[in-house]
Design a protein around this nucleic acid. Sequence first.
DNA 1: GCAAGGTC
Length: 697
Amino acid sequence: MEGYTFVITEKPDAAYRIANALDDKGKAERLVEKGIPYFIAYRKEKIVVVPTLGHLYTVTQSGKEQGSRYPVFNIKWAPLYQVKRKADRSRIWLQVISNLAREANRFIDACDYDLEGSIIGYCILKYACGEKQSVAKRMKYSTLTKEELQRAYDSLLPNLNFALIESGLTRHEVDWLYGVNLSRALTLATKRIGGYYATLSTGRVQGPTLKFLVERERDIAGFVPTPYWTIKAQITKEEKQFEATYKRNPVKTKEEAEKIAETCRGKKGIVESVEEKKLILPPPVPFDLGELQSEAYSSFGYLPILTSTTTQQLYLEALISYPRTGSQKLPPQIGYEDILKKLSAWHEYNRLARELLAEPKLKPNEGKKSDPAHPAIYPTGKLPEKALVGAGKNIFDLVVRRFFAVFGSPAIRQIIRVTINIDGESFTLTGKKTVEEGWLRFYNPYRKLEDVPLPLFQKGQEVEVEGLILENKVTQPPPRYSPKTLLQKMEEHNIGTKATRAGIIQTLYDRGYIRDEKVMVSELGVAVIDTLEKFCPSVVSVEFTRQLEEQMEAIRQGKETKERIIARTIENLKEVTTNLKVNEKAVGEQLSRALQMAKIRQKTIGSCPICHSGKLSIIQSKKTNKRFAGCTNYFKGTCKAAFPLPQRGIIEPSERVCYSCKWPTVQVSLRGKKRWILCLNPACLNKIQKIKEAGVK
DNA sequence: GCAAGGTC
């Protein structure tokens, strides 16, 4: 076989698009070898375009000693299948790549032109293609459009970007050294001292994320609520009642509030001013993954990880564009009109799509963020082959309507503020109305703005004051993070990436560091942060990421080297791990205690409804191997209370008493089914309750 | 198996 040009891409979709763009006839040949797809294109020459599947190489411990020891500083790069279980497909994938590289006489790296993409291509060329990294050319493109890809191919960069590659390798190695060594230190201290085995972990992203949550817990715990008062005046106009709020709300003391109310009581109000303002709401910007995850949480309550897997499915069905993007831009090359035309074939979107198509010019309201490899998320225009259901249906609809909305005109809201003077004190009434619907019409029902109607007030008019309302309130502690706000916080500090943030939050749940949707930190989570703050404060600080980024930038500029940074990392970790070992007893005790408390908490349902002094606990019978709820006083011989529990599914304490009989309840969840609440009282008339009825969040 | 990162 004659030689050909070998092009490596980061993922199958990119290989498909590149091959088609390069092929003279615009239609490359798709071949499959051992289940792995690749493409052949002709463009004066034969081009074989082969995808990889993200990282097929990773950092791992070198040498034979693999046991549970730390610190470990000898690392190497190895194929993923040697490191990870269930990675057989990656072994075959590499075989296919190697085979296709053998006959090639020219090599081109066409992976995403970013940090990770650069290492992905480099490792394939170096390890799977036989040291071709030094002769390979680099194809640099920023969108997967035909014109851009052809341009990129015709103006190849002569070399790989070795400085970028070196910084990427450093990022992987530093993360591995910190993450693995500190995770082992935590796990082993707990095991050796307390005898508990639990996988504990931390890292450059997990650390600060957990610390945000712990800091919030500390703020909440240390919060001192202070009372305050608010005043409202009941106004009557045209036989309708309105509540005008006092301008100087909140009022600090009860005395002051009562004094103000007293002066106003029984007096007439005079309209002091009527101000009208127009509020312009620009259309939203296109979705990047983070924004879509936030919006899906607000609109449907979907956790970021669900949105992430759902968008991946929609992408694989070709219904939406590539979802793991940080871009808020929609370049014209995606073909706005074509997409709208295709969507208009769908009954649900027909009217809105046609309305946009009637516009003289389509211009999306783009956001600031861009991504070197992908545009924002948009519907491709393809209609689903079978009807979408559940999360797929909802998220697809959200993506389509957002796509429509970014082309819409600004919405205009009219805000009317009426100031009413009652014996020298000012009160305001606010009316709100949407006067120009603009893009809101396209984004319905995902952005609801309520109208607050107000009758016509005129300056100098007299109004009746029916009464005054005093309300005693207390300041609230800062709210717990939700999956949405936590994700935003991570983005704000630039830790993790759009593809990993949701998963890292999930890891914190899996480790038992956090629980509940309004995130609470467990004793274990607090103990982990406590330990790390003492022994390795850098790994729980967002500064760490910033420093690493600086060092990587220095490498790119040739001012630093990977060797020097790794050497410094090792030096620091030697000190940290020595300290941890010296203090292993204290560390292990603290973590074990927290783990033990967590285990007890997971089993404790509530106070015993029979003896009232013990606690009901989930117990596994040694005789029958069945579980039941039993009183802790059983072991003292003072209470024999025991109640049956379902034998299947996961049982957790609900932390709520039954709304109907006040007995303790548990939360039961069967795999793939909704959770429900079970009251333990055998005589309760509402033994089985829905989550909402029971008042559980 | 522990990280974080890419991909299906």
